[in-house]
Nucleic acid binder design. Structure first.
Length: 428
RNA sequence: UCCUCGAUAGCUCAAUGGUAGAGCACGCGGCUGUUAACCGCGGGGUUGUAGGUUCGAGUCCUACUCGAGGAGCCA
C-alpha cells in the first residue's frame, strides 16, 4: 500500500491509507484504544475497538516511540486536533521501542540537552526545525530571485578575517589552519568575479561565550554586492528579512501556532525599517537613563533597549571607527564613524545582522591592516581586489540561529539548530 | 576568565537541624471517545563528591565537580 503523509490526510477522506511513523502516545480504556502517531509531517490519532482483536493486541504491544505502519480509513473529526482521525484496520509494529527516556511530562534543560537526538522528536522542537528549514529555503529563494549567485566560501582559512576574536585552530598537515569565522573576505573576491553573491555555511567562534544568544558553531548567510553602497545594502537587507517573514507566515502557520508564537508581532514587521545612527542611538540610551558614553560598544541590554523602541527590526548605522572591523569604510562626511550598519531584531532579540560598506581604497586598507597589526602577507590577495578594478561594495552577514530564535519566539538559541555546539558541550 | 543561582527516586519537584515524600514514568489489574486520559495496587534512594560543626545534617560551614543564567566578545 502506498504510504500517505499525515500532513496530506485531508486529501484522502474516506480512503484506506497507510501511515508510516512512530507512536507518540497511547490511551486505552479496555475496549477502545487511541494511538497517537507522528510521521515527521504531522500527528494523527488512530482509533480502534477491541472487536478488531488482531489490531488491538498489536496496539497493546506498542510502547512510546515504537515504529509502526498504521492502516485505516481517514475520517474528518472535529474533535481531533488536526481535524482528521483514522479508523484503524491494521497495526503493524516495525520495532518495539525500549523504555523511552523522554516522557510526556516536563523535563529540565540539562536532561533534554543530553538527549537532543531524541528531544527533536517532540512536536515543538520538530516545528522549530521545520521553520528553520523554511527560513533557509526562503533566503536562498530571495537571493536567487534577486540575481545573487551562491559562491561558497572556504571553511578552513589561513588567518583571522578580523584578527580580534578567538578561532578554532587545526593542524593543516603541519601548517596552522583555522575554522572560518566569516566568509566575508572571500565574498569580496567572488563579488568582484560575479557581481552579486552570497555564501551560506557554518561559522566558528572559539570565544567562551555562555549566553542564550551564542553558539560556538552557527550558520551564517553572507551576501556581498559590487557597486552597492551602505544604503543599497540596508535596502537589500530589509527586503530580505521581510521576504523571509512573509514566507514563514505563509508556509508555517501551524508550526508558529504550535509554538504559541504571537503572530501579530511578525505581521508588524514592515518596510522601511527604521534607521538610526549610532550617535542617535546613544542619545536614545541616555534618555532611557542608561549611563553610556559615545565611543563604547553596545552590550546586550543596550541592544534590547534600542530594539524595543520599534516594532520592526532597526538599523543602527555609522558606528565609531575604533569599535568596528578594519575593512569598514569611513563616512566621507564624518571620518570618526564608518558606513557600517547592524540590524537589531525587536522583542529583545538583539543583533541578527552585521554589515556595511567596505574600504575600496588601497592605501587606506594598507594603513588599517598596519593599525590593527594584521600580518600583511596573509592579506595580499585581499589587497589585490583594490589593485585590480576596485569598486565601492557592501555586504552583510545574517545569523541563522538568532533569526530562527526571533521568528519562533525562543528564549534560548540552543533550540534553533538540530545539534547546538555550546561551551563545553558537544554531545550528542 | 569573572559574577549570581542550583544539584534529593528514571523525570519534575517537596521535606523548622529530629523516621526520605508526592506526581509522572515503569509493572500488574480495571474502564467503549481518550486529549500530558483516569482509578486501584506495587517495586524504586550511599540526598553531586570530600571533609567539618552537632547528641543528631537533605538542611549549617569549607573545598571541589557538574549544570543554569548573566558579563566580556559577537551573528
Amino acid at each position: 500500500m502506498t504510504p500517505t503523509l499525515i500532513k496530506n490526510l485531508s486529501r484522502h477522506v474516506g480512503e484506506e491509507v497507510e501511515i508510516r511513523g512512530w507512536l507518540f502516545n497511547k490511551r486505552s480504556s479496555g475496549k477502545i484504544a487511541f494511538l497517537i502517531v507522528r510521521d515527521g509531517s504531522g500527528v494523527v490519532q488512530g482509533v480502534l475497538l477491541k472487536t478488531n482483536e488482531t489490531a488491538f493486541a498489536a496496539a497493546e504491544m506498542l510502547t512510546q516511540e515504537s515504529s509502526l505502519y498504521l492502516r485505516g480509513t481517514v475520517r474528518a473529526e472535529p474533535r481531533a486536533t488536526g481535524g482528521y482521525e483514522i479508523d484503524v484496520t491494521q497495526v503493524i509494529p516495525v520495532s518495539i521501542a525500549g523504555e523511552y527516556p523522554i516522557s510526556l511530562k516536563e523535563h529540565g534543560v540539562e536532561f533534554l540537552a543530553e538527549r537532543r537526538h531524541l528531544w527533536i522528536r517532540t512536536p515543538k522542537q520538530a516545528a522549530i526545525l521545520r521553520i528553520r528549514a523554511e527560513i533557509e529555503f526562503a533566503l536562498r529563494e530571495f537571493f536567487y530571485r534577486n540575481d545573487f549567485v551562491l559562491a561558497d566560501a572556504p571553511i578552513i582559512t589561513p588567518a583571522a578575517c578580523e584578527g580580534t576574536t578567538n578561532l578554532f585552530e587545526i593542524d593543516y598537515h603541519g601548517d596552522k589552519g583555522y575554522l572560518s569565522q566569516s566568509g566575508q573576505l572571500y565574498n569580496e573576491a567572488t563579488a568582484a568575479a560575479l557581481g552579486r553573491i552570497y555564501c551560506f555555511g557554518p561559522t566558528f567562534r572559539a570565544e567562551k561565550s555562555k549566553t542564550r544568544r551564542h553558539l560556538l558553531e552557527f550558520w551564517m548567510i553572507e551576501a556581498e554586492a559590487a557597486f552597492f553602497d551602505v544604503d543599497d545594502n540596508m535596502r537589500l537587507q530589509e527586503d530580505m528579512v521581510v521576504y523571509v517573514i512573509e514566507r514563514v507566515l505563509e508556509r508555517c502557520r501551524n508550526e508558529l501556532k504550535l509554538l504559541e508564537r504571537d503572530i501579530s508581532k511578525l505581521e508588524a514587521v514592515k518596510k522601511p525599517f527604521p534607521r538610526i545612527s549610532y550617535t542617535d542611538a546613544v542619545a536614545l540610551l541616555n534618555k532611557a537613563g542608561e549611563a553610556f558614553e559615545w565611543g563604547d560598544d553596545f552590550g546586550a541590554p543596550h541592544e534590547t533597549i534600542i530594539g524595543n523602541h520599534f516594532d520592526s527590526p532597526v538599523f543602527v548605522h555609522r558606528y565609531p571607527t575604533a569599535i568596528k572591523a578594519f575593512y569598514m569604510k569611513p563616512d566621507p562626511e564624518d571620518e570618526k564613524v564608518v558606513l557600517g550598519a547592524d540590524l537589531l531584531a525587536p522583542e529583545g532579540y538583539g543583533e541578527i545582522i552585521g554589515g556595511g560598506q567596505r574600504i575600496d581604497d588601497l592605501a587606506l586598507l594598507e594603513q588599517r591592516l598596519a593599525e590593527h597589526q594584521l600580518p600583511r602577507e596573509a592579506f595580499e590577495w585581499y589587497l589585490d581586489l583594490r589593485r585590480y578594478g576596485s569598486v565601492p561594495h557592501s555586504g552583510f552577514g545574517l545569523g541563522i540561529e538568532r533569526t530562527v530564535a526571533w521568528i519562533c519566539g525562543l528564549d534560548h538559541i540552543r533550540e534553533s539548530i538540530p545539534f547546538p555546539r555550546l561551551l563545553h558541550k558537544m554531545y550528542p
